[in-house]
Design a protein around this nucleic acid. Structure first.
Lengths: 348, 348
DNA sequence: AGAAGTCACGAAAACGTTTTCGTGTTAAAA
DNA sequence: TTTTAACACGAAAACGTTTTCGTGACTTCT
């Protein structure tokens, strides 16, 4: 087991100085052609590669970006990662992941671990718990140390940094308008509690669409699910809630749900109650998930273009990292990724 | 924007040497209590944290493990990552990801990038292209440099390293036996070409089950799909192939598919042809996917316990990293994770 | 009081790079 | 022939740590 070869070893073997080897390998004109050839040949033979860690230390730059998300087993987030990885790699960066598992404490810990030299910048989506606690000190601390942050999807307006979001409001509004256009008269909303930023925005889009079409929002058409429960496990609890919604208002002929799982559950419950989709009730979800496409009937949905979000976030971050951030005062951007309404078989 | 504080700065401020600061912070008995208190207080005030990169260089150990997978937008792989991250974090390691996107070249590039000091070891599942080319030089090179590797799921017997696999053969056999037990007489197999190691093993399990129950395998019951095509995009092509299978053999009353998508497509085609599930035809898939659970009817499937695989792989790797690997000759383990047959509504 | 020992701290090396500056040798110019 | 310039290379510092070894100033023992 031969360890990786270093400049020092090459220097010793060839009886030159370390500096000479370094210069020869970077093709410096300081070194004679003879010596360069000799050194380069030797280096190639032994498959020399500079040690990344040493370079990082010297340059105070790791060429690594950290991505901090609440959960990885989630189609949306993994697509974002793919986008990040794509442009990061193209621009010469590695990606290191941290999972908060929706926990504030883990988010902070992870952040501190990576901020101690391991990465040049963060791309992150904040955990639900952080959203609830509204404690953002770790973001401010990290940024004050000169480590840039890009937030995506779940962002917080109190923090000044680059952001990548989808137009949740408009996406929701468009979806609901589609239902209205399709002649739905009693459109239910299945959403989250308001502290979830995106849930809140989508709720507002729903309300706005109704208002603009002179339909009065009715409280008993709106179901705010407590999403601290993991419904991947307790699916039946979710379905029970939705069933109550349907039963308390028999006239429901349209459903807008703020995520895929809620939408699918709505379809399931509706079918169970003898309602046909899309004839009796039409359903639209919100997300990029894989379930929508393969559901029966396939689910119409507001697509978020997760991968594109990841790409945008990575570009934003790397731009910031590589900019001479003292040339002007900080200027933060917010990139809005347009949503698309994908019509499938759950709408007419 | 104050940069992170270093030992040197603390030393200068407090008018002591760097060594003294370092020792004081590690609570060395060499340093007087007075000095220790002073230094520790100062360090806490300025929130001193040792620079990871400097530590990595000094210790020649990064406390980071690399995970190299073909694709991240895939329920199975993201669950594995979650498992890896879980134990890695618990044991004080970070996780850095590389995506090969099923390409040999990207796999090699990624590996070389990370192997130059960035990580202490690899957890990986090889790309389809690598499986086809059977070119494994990069694995051998990496290991010969003293960087341990743990392979999972898609492994290759030619390489001597730790491995984590599921018992594909047995899992498949059990599934097919379930179909037989449920009175299926003509069980179709939808699988991949043979170069995909897991596909091959699952095919063998299918054959074995038939044989043991005195059923003769029939060529026209077996569909070997060319999976170089991305069927997430060209779903119709896949469905057309499966439709041909059904039409060429009308007596099919059971289907075993080696992955989730094939199984779902089979259900879709069957329904389209007027067959009822599970009455006319029963279907079992293979995977941990999210689709199975939410499909209608929900799909019976062989569960791989992806997260558990990730956890096992991480433990294996870290054990190897932290072992004095010169105390004995190399001893490689292969951990087999048991599969479970999850019965849902696509079987009787 | 001299020897021996303890205490508290600093100097320096090492990890693997890159880069600035200095220097000895040779060739060209005066 | 002497001065100057070009050439080819080496020494050393720096990035931020940890750790080994040395050393001066006191204590303590005899």
């Amino acid at each position: 087991m031969r360890r990786k070869i270093t400049l020092k070893q090459i220097a010793r073997e060839l009886d030159v100085s370390i500096s000479t080897v370094s210069k020869a390998l970077s093709n410096s004109i300081e070194i004679s052609d003879d010596t360069k050839q000799k050194i380069q040949a030797f280096a190639k033979l032994y498959n020399y590669r500079p040690n990344n860690i040493a370079l990082s230390l010297k340059n105070r730059k790791t060429n690594t970006i950290g991505i901090l998300i609440p959960e990885i087993v989630h189609h949306f987030f993994s697509k974002v990662i793919r986008g990040v990885e794509l442009v990061a790699n193209r621009r010469g960066y590695n990606v290191i992941i941290g999972l908060s598992n929706e926990s504030f404490a883990k988010e902070v810990i992870n952040m501190e671990m990576l901020a101690n030299g391991s990465i040049d910048g963060f791309i992150l989506s904040i955990s639900k718990e952080t959203q609830q606690l509204q404690d953002y000190h770790h973001f401010n601390e990290t940024m004050s140390q000169g480590i840039p942050i890009v937030m995506f999807d779940r962002v917080v307006s109190e923090i000044n940094c680059d952001k990548v979001i989808v137009d949740d409001f408009k996406g929701a509004k468009t979806a609901v308008e589609k239902l209205i256009e399709n002649n739905c008269k009693h459109i239910a909303l299945i959403t989250t509690k308001d502290y979830v930023s995106v849930g809140k925005l989508r709720t507002q889009g729903y309300l706005q669409a109704l208002e603009e079409h002179k339909m009065t929002p009715m409280a008993d058409l709106i179901l705010k699910v407590d999403d601290t429960v993991d419904y991947e496990v307790h699916l039946d609890a979710l379905e029970a809630e939705i069933e109550r919604l349907f039963k308390s208002n028999k006239s429901i002929d349209g459903v807008f749900a703020v995520n895929e799982l809620y939408a699918l559950s709505a379809m399931k419950v509706a079918r169970k109650l003898g309602l046909e989709i899309p004839n009796d009730v039409q359903v639209i979800g919100f997300t990029d998930g894989v379930l929508s496409k393969h559901a029966t009937p396939s689910l119409s949905t507001v697509s978020q273009h997760a991968q594109q979000m990841g790409e945008a976030a990575a570009d934003l971050l790397i731009d910031k990292i590589e900019s001479d951030y003292n040339d002007e005062e900080e200027q933060f951007k917010t990139v809005v990724i347009a949503t698309d309404l994908i019509e499938r078989d759950s709408t007419k």
